[in-house]
Design a protein around this nucleic acid. Sequence first.
DNA 1: CTGTTAGCGCTTTCAT
DNA 2: ATGAAAGCGCTAACAG
Lengths: 356, 356
Amino acid sequence: MTSRDDDEQDSSQRHAAPVHRRVSRLIDIAEAVGVHTSTVSRVLNGDPAQSVRPEIYQRILAVARQQGYRPNALARALKQRRVGAFAFVIPLLRNPIWVRLQRGALQRAAELGYVVMIMEEPDDDPRPPDAYRYLVEESRADGLLIATSLRVKEHADGVSLAPHVYVNRRGPRRGNDVIMDEAGAVRLFVDHVTKLGHRNLAIIDGPAAVDTVHRRAIAARRLCARRDLGLTVLHTAATEDGGWDAAAQMLRLALRPTACAVGSLNQLFGVLAALRQADVPVPGAMSVVSFDDDECLAYLEVPVTSVAMPLAELGSAAVDALVSRVDGGEQRDVLVRAPMILVPRESVGPCPTLLA
Amino acid sequence: MTSRDDDEQDSSQRHAAPVHRRVSRLIDIAEAVGVHTSTVSRVLNGDPAQSVRPEIYQRILAVARQQGYRPNALARALKQRRVGAFAFVIPLLRNPIWVRLQRGALQRAAELGYVVMIMEEPDDDPRPPDAYRYLVEESRADGLLIATSLRVKEHADGVSLAPHVYVNRRGPRRGNDVIMDEAGAVRLFVDHVTKLGHRNLAIIDGPAAVDTVHRRAIAARRLCARRDLGLTVLHTAATEDGGWDAAAQMLRLALRPTACAVGSLNQLFGVLAALRQADVPVPGAMSVVSFDDDECLAYLEVPVTSVAMPLAELGSAAVDALVSRVDGGEQRDVLVRAPMILVPRESVGPCPTLLA
DNA sequence: CTGTTAGCGCTTTCAT
DNA sequence: ATGAAAGCGCTAACAG
């Protein structure tokens, strides 16, 4: 870029005085129209019991629009004891599932007139949900969406002091959980590979302390026991490194599995790398399924079959549940009804021993 | 784990009555201690001009602690005309850069006593930053962190009505931008590959309308012109698909480049897939550098060399800049000083024509 | 040293 | 059909 390029600093525009126009208040409209603020309030809020002279009514509306009136959310909230905001506690992992979850929640909240503030859960030092109660106590939020990675045993009671909902997690007491059908995801995997002759399976997933992982593991054990299938569950860090280690471990197993499911995208990269390095062809010698769906899976060396989870729906359902709690509705766990879906790609093949 | 497992619904705990204890107010403490609320306020806020009888002072502190007092952020904000919150407008792409940016911003904001609410920019219908001004006007936020994907030309003026800062973007007028050294990233790429003999380069990146892309393209053109290097810039959607298409296009070029840089992780997957499908070995026939750093790059079929950008620092610097604006400080653009770093892996090799 | 007073901007009975 | 008045919980002059 030369000096004529639009990248040059336009010094004539530097330090332009910031014009932070003071916003119009109820009383400004009232004075302009010549009525009392309460009248304006009623009109602007569409008070059902209102009966305002149409002429005044129109004038108020007109002036409000013309002045660009914005209700002060603070004052309103103070009076109504309702902030119109939720806090969403997320472990800000690289894992894309949080992004989609967040999107679902944000969208639904916006529809219902709530804003969402995101609180990051530090991965190194996960805190009990109670640590975020202050947000409600300080009237910064009406309720808490909690998706910490901690297994619930860690944090005792005292949690329900603020309206909250556990997202994709089960909290210490029932009635506040919004979860997906993890067992269904496991079943999809097991059905898919057993249909192709696999009898010896593995699951590589995050720490057992994570509730979703826990539930998947339990579902898998139960299902495999019932069908008399071999199963190894490997818990490891939800990172590429973790996946790599677990895969290496899996390959050393006396009775080596022929199909595995992997709990997170990051782990998956590690697993695939480990298999590649050990010259274990996919799906020739090992079928692989990912529990994280992501578009990039279709573009990998060998496109990876995955289970797509209704994450946006989960986020949206969580917001609905929280709204219901804030409104004093009844408390019950919700299982997101949108189904898990198996997305077949090319990483799953017939059981190699059948071909031998 | 069988049916005695803690997975069973503990129906005894269902529908536990929600105990939303009303929080203690200033006046509760005042009454308990037998002083006026203003005294309590002074003590609790550590009013510098205070001179309170130590005995009372201690009693107030004790009672406040004992009652678990939490200042009502709403009331305080209403009075002080300062909310203690920022809104961060992000295009919630899958691209992991937003996650790291978000993390940096959240962390710094928390340090400074601000909460951050995330507003999602719908990718399908990007809105001008002005569309988020209402958040400030409604006193929901003190300022705006804006990272929309729009190139700034699209949205005219009228933006500076609320304190704001453009993050990783340049807004319509100087003085409000917090950006990184994109040109430096480009230079890193060009230096790295030219040192290995490459003379004909390509850049595959997002739409030219995105400011960062624009800046990288301009920097690349300038640099290559100066050094008499061939350069093709391909703008395409920031998706796997987009990357695939661009790579295919690149391979059809009369003078085929021997080294390319790719603007986003998603595109990278597409590019690698296209090269694989066309039997173009990496780095044998094509060297590849990613402008998005991510741990997974090290685990790909051929580990991909990348340029790591100081995204967390960017987020943190943006918050600092916004705080300074809110406090009426001077307005100037900031360039994040933390450097871009080239992370060499295995996707870059010597120029093939040199070997021939 | 501490209490009084006066709001911040809005909603909501209760009158008229 | 509209105004008056009270008050959400807190802070900040200003008195005393």
